[in-house]
Design a protein around this nucleic acid. Structure first.
Length: 695
RNA sequence: GGACGAUUAGCUCAAUUGGCAGAGCAUCUCAUUUACACUGAGAGGGUUGCAGGUUCGAGUCCUGCAUCGUCCACCA
């Protein structure tokens, strides 16, 4: 009897993980083939969202590991050939940003480094993190198949990515366009719309005299080249002006000739209802210029400084130039009024919060509409199931309004875009990192020829954060379907954010970050896993309270002690053919079976929070508080001992997906295979035991 | 401006899809070494955000409103 004292996770976890890993059962090819369960050797696949190899495991990862491990262990016990394929993402821009911060601390800068030198350093950094994260994933008890682990920069993955790019090109879906993009001046790269965020800013709104018109602008520094004044065709105030009218007027640096353009894009209510356009530095203006075939001129360079067109202001930064330009305009009597406290929304870089400067740049774009079409249909006809369901609407809305995807990033850390005629010789152009991760399910399984692809694709469940539904999930569906003609997964399960105990978003600046490894150290992995799954409905954010986890540590100890009692009390238990159960005992077994059915259904419905609660409640308040207490009256009875062993073993099975370490440890100490009960402990690991086989 | 979610015990959340509103934590009372004090027995705590409607029956379905949150599109 080794169940001494209290449950000590430290004595069990590392040892147990090694035992599992050495068993080879994380690899579905090694699973026992004599399964009788529901799965009967069918495959079950989850591709792990590849963790960014640029830091440590955070609470969100811990949640991913917990939910996906629960699914995988459950299906494995049901007799499926369960594959959970782990991976890591080079996470292009994200990682480069992390590394740049590191460089900054060391007083260095990426712009003073040779691209290859920078690439090599980041690779080194990434490989170190990769090792780190692999250890942390193991610590969470993840039963994933390490032999199939993939990294987004593996040669075969890169090949797949290039193959997709070629095919897209051949089908006319890739084009090189000179379009307006989001430019981060600090990071010196373009960003997709998803990589920018909106920030409210208070500025001044300047009303400037532009010939007979008054135009409102918050950005006078972009106005040097403005030669078109636009108004709504139905605006009665400007009825006298016709599209194409020319007029001469005095502007910032002298007289110019301007033309009138009429366009519905103008809001009559805003400002004066008339505006000039700067197609190079504003998305709306760009659209108007495209529509009317107007010339576009760059005013601000890629470092945020004014170009020679600004005359005396050339070379100045925006912040420096703006007040001086206004001074000059005031001196010329061209400022009608200045509205203070003008609140508006500006785009900022989602990493560094600096203002996005829209720029026109030649880039690779992917036409999304043809890719989105079949996915819209698939979602509408229910070919893919969303959990929770409302993500269906969210996805459809996005897909139906989809924009072309700018694929180019001006960073070294990533997969280089092949044969890229970059704007300047020597300029780097790599794929947006989501272009490679968007191909993850089929790329990791070795599309098109490998046996794995044929066996495990399409995958069963894509479990990831609701936050990245557009970034990743939608794109995986589009690229996956485009390449393989099949949707990459049948079910999308989206979890919410993990928040701190007060429901606040965790952030380094707030200092409320909960490190899952600290929790594991303090309370054990099983307790953390329970804390992450209990009360966690899909899609909803979860407040992670340390007290809650402490409660599940107590539960682990409860399991430990109850098992101890059962094992000590049944030391002399011997098998007989017929067990003479009392009617109460029969009732207990019947209730157990009912519970098994309920839990199985809840697991099948992805209601892990509810299944966990059922088992928890049953084990503690039914088995421990009632059945064990009752048993003390006639603990010597054969039937009583049989009942205790039966319920204990069935409970361990149901608990295993949630609390794998403690249940496996106790399972190993149950009496050896016994023909009169369903116990068959000595040969098999619990992780490959059959899910429901009591009675 | 559009969409989506949330609103249930002091706190965090359930309620297996229309059938007796329930858990954990917290609080209070009792038990005092029991397999387990990381414990046990019990108690208090609710007009399910508001106003209507459908129904034998509504936390659940319908309509409107309020508050909080998230996402999308945007005004120079």
């Amino acid at each position: 009897m080794n169940l001494e004292g209290q449950y000590d996770p430290k004595k069990v976890e590392d040892k147990m993980y090694k035992l599992w890993e050495d068993s080879g059962f994380f690899n579905p090819d090694n699973l026992p083939t004599d399964k009788r369960g529901k799965g009967k050797g069918k495959s079950f696949t989850i591709i792990m969202p590849p963790a960014n190899a640029n830091g440590n495991l955070h609470a969100g990862h811990a949640l991913v590991m917990t939910i996906e491990d629960i699914m995988t262990r459950y299906k494995r016990m049901q007799g499926f050939r369960a594959l959970w394929l782990p991976g890591l993402d080079h996470a292009g821009f994200e990682t480069q940003v992390v590394y740049e911060k590191k460089l900054e601390k060391e007083g260095r800068s990426r712009f003073k480094m040779e691209p290859q030198e920078l690439y090599n350093e980041i690779m080194q950094f990434t490989l170190e993190n990769k090792k780190n994260i692999e250890g942390q994933v193991r610590k969470m008890g993840a039963s994933c198949d390490w032999s199939r682990q993939k990294f987004t920069l593996d040669p075969d993955i890169i090949n797949t990515v290039y193959g997709t790019f070629e095919k897209l090109k051949k089908d006319g879906l890739i084009y090189r366009g000179k379009k307006i993009i989001n430019w981060c001046v600090k990071h010196q790269t373009s960003l997709s719309d998803l990589e920018t965020k909106d920030t409210e800013k208070v500025d001044k709104l300047y009303y400037l005299k532009y010939g007979p018109f008054v135009i409102a602008t918050a950005r006078p520094e972009t106005k040097f080249g403005d030669k078109y004044v636009v108004m709504h065709p139905k605006d009665p105030r400007y009825a006298q002006y016709k599209n194409g009218d020319k007029l001469s007027l005095e502007w910032i640096n002298g007289p110019i000739e301007a033309s009138v353009v009429k366009d519905e894009a103008i809001e009559m209510e805003f400002g004066t209802g008339a505006m000039t356009i700067t197609p190079w530095h504003d998305a709306v203006d760009f659209g108007i210029a495209e529509k009317h075939d107007l010339p576009k001129e760059q005013i601000i360079d890629f470092y945020g400084k004014l170009l020679p067109v600004a005359g005396e202001f050339a070379g100045m930064k925006i912040s420096e130039a703006r007040p001086r330009i206004i001074e000059k305009l005031q001196a010329k009597g061209l400022v009608e009024k200045i509205e203070e406290n003008y609140k508006h929304i500006v785009k900022t870089c989602y990493k560094c919060d600096s203002l996005i400067e829209p720029q026109i740049k030649e880039q690779w774009f992917l036409k999304m509409e043809p890719l989105a079409k079949p996915i819209i249909k698939a979602i509408e006809t229910g070919k893919v199931k969303f959990i929770p369901e409302h993500y269906k609407k969210i996805s459809l809305h996005w897909l139906k309004n989809i924009m072309d995807w700018p694929l180019s990033r001006q960073i070294v850390w990533g997969i280089p875009i092949p044969a890229s005629p970059a704007d300047k010789p020597g300029e780097v152009e790599t794929f947006d990192t989501w272009f490679s991760s968007g191909q993850w399910p089929f790329a990791t399984l070795g599309f098109p020829e490998s046996k794995d692809f044929k066996t495990f694709y399409p995958t069963d469940v894509m479990e990831t954060a609701g936050e990245i539904i557009f970034f990743w999930v939608a794109r995986m569906m589009m690229l996956g379907f485009y390449i393989t003609k099949k949707l990459p997964f049948k079910t999308v399960y989206l979890h919410g954010l993990v928040l701190d105990a007060k429901g606040q978003k965790m952030s380094k600046s707030k200092g409320n970050v909960i490190n899952p490894l600290d929790i594991t150290d303090k309370y054990g992995t099983d307790a953390l896993r329970m804390g992450l799954v209990m009360g966690n409905t899909p899609g909803q954010s979860l407040a992670l309270d340390e007290n809650k986890i402490k409660g599940y540590k107590n539960f682990a100890n409860k399991i430990w002690n109850a098992s101890k009692f059962v094992l000590i009390s049944t030391q002399n238990f011997t098998a007989v053919k017929k067990v003479a159960l009392s009617s109460t005992q029969k009732e207990h077994l019947k209730n157990l079976k009912t519970l098994q059915k309920e839990v199985t259904k809840l697991m099948d419905d992805f209601k892990f929070y509810y299944a966990a609660e059922k088992i928890y409640h049953y084990f503690w308040h039914e088995f421990c508080d009632k059945i064990i207490e009752e048993s003390k009256k006639d603990i010597a009875s054969h039937a009583t001992q049989y009942l205790l062993l039966e319920i204990l073993s069935a409970s361990l099975k149901m608990l295993h997906p949630f609390m794998p370490f403690i249940t496996e440890e106790i399972w190993g100490q149950l009496p050896a295979k016994n023909p009169s009960t369903s116990l068959r402990a000595s040969k098999n690991l619990l992780m490959v035991e059959s899910w429901n086989t009591t009675g």
